[in-house]
Design a protein around this nucleic acid. Sequence first.
DNA 1: CGCCCCTCTTGATATTTGTCAAGACGCCAC
DNA 2: GTGGCGTCTTGACAAATATCAAGAGGGGCG
Lengths: 214, 214
Amino acid sequence: MQAGLSKSILADVRELDLFAEMEDANFGALMRGAYIQNFPPQIELITEGETSDFLHIVLSGSVNLFASWNGRETSMTTLQPVSTFILAATIRDAPYLMSARTLEKSRVALVPSQDVRAVFGTDAAFARAIVTDLAQAYRSVVKNTKNLKLRTSLERLANYLLRQSRQHGASETFELSTDKRRLASYLGMTPENLSRVRWPPFSGQCCGAAKLAC
Amino acid sequence: MQAGLSKSILADVRELDLFAEMEDANFGALMRGAYIQNFPPQIELITEGETSDFLHIVLSGSVNLFASWNGRETSMTTLQPVSTFILAATIRDAPYLMSARTLEKSRVALVPSQDVRAVFGTDAAFARAIVTDLAQAYRSVVKNTKNLKLRTSLERLANYLLRQSRQHGASETFELSTDKRRLASYLGMTPENLSRVRWPPFSGQCCGAAKLAC
DNA sequence: CGCCCCTCTTGATATTTGTCAAGACGCCAC
DNA sequence: GTGGCGTCTTGACAAATATCAAGAGGGGCG
């Protein structure tokens, strides 16, 4: 653990849309209060239901957001560097709705929530950036809900693969960025079910499949 | 249809958290560009995929947001007056992710999106209010996703009823605010399935059920 | 190598959920 | 009243998905 952030990391963070336009003095204030922590894999960083003391920023490695209830657990999303998470909880000073754990050895910056809220109140550019960020996040979750409610698990998988393929330059083959267990959970199905998928003869509708969640 | 909004309506709108703190001049500018329209029941106000030209405000009646894909349709949420909708699409100048239709005879105010974006850029208080609104909206959708992924349809229904009951002052009986067809769609199940629900002997876990989505 | 551990797969089966068709019920107009 | 219409319910069945149990395969390590 160390107080303050090194120059190269500061530059990476500042380049995030969320921080790019805010005033230097305010960015400096946020970062002075922040600290960095290195975590081994599979460490629970935050726990659903607790109050949000820090805005988190993944600097390296990767972090999975998940939720659980009544003995069941589901993967919500996976974060790659450099990105922030639980911004909404921080802004509203509300309990976390999701838990987070590292997937690999990861470096995470922690910015005290009250600092974020304070700067949010005084720096208009920062407030605007937060709006853009939250609007984007909101739209992502809505797409996800539509995905869950309107598609079968097979269709969700197909859509996921199509999007991944496109992200990898529309190549015929590519590597999954996650193990199948977590992928299944993310898609709202069991690993067994995922493993069993065999592509039936495609209906003409298939190509339209990608439209919903892209 | 009429240009400008009457005083009593203006007051209602101004009381919304979204507009309460912004500068008078900016609020006035927004409202001067707005107009009101009265719609009969079952009219489609906006259609998924189109560009968001207006921020909408339900003034009376009620509006259902829904999404469709591949012949299937699902109810996402229902709006009661006075509330705004599709703020995120307006802010991001992005296509609607959901369609909207009136459920009853409804009065809706339409505020040009470009006005909203313009004022958002200059009025810090408005920007902050939008943040709060979006953060809230984001958290609602996350709760909804958790609900869908972690609970069975029976559990979702139970949770819905518990929440409704609490909203009605924890009374033993209350009236559903929607027909069962739309409720089923909202909960991600078929009407037949909803109709078939018979409460099994409660497990000890039941009371915890309300926690997730409240 | 041989062993253990982990992930993934497969099979058998149960549960949940959706589909289709028919009927019950209330409501309203005539 | 009577007939139509819409919503809701019910039954029989089919499809989708989950669960449980077992086994295949790969990689690290002594």
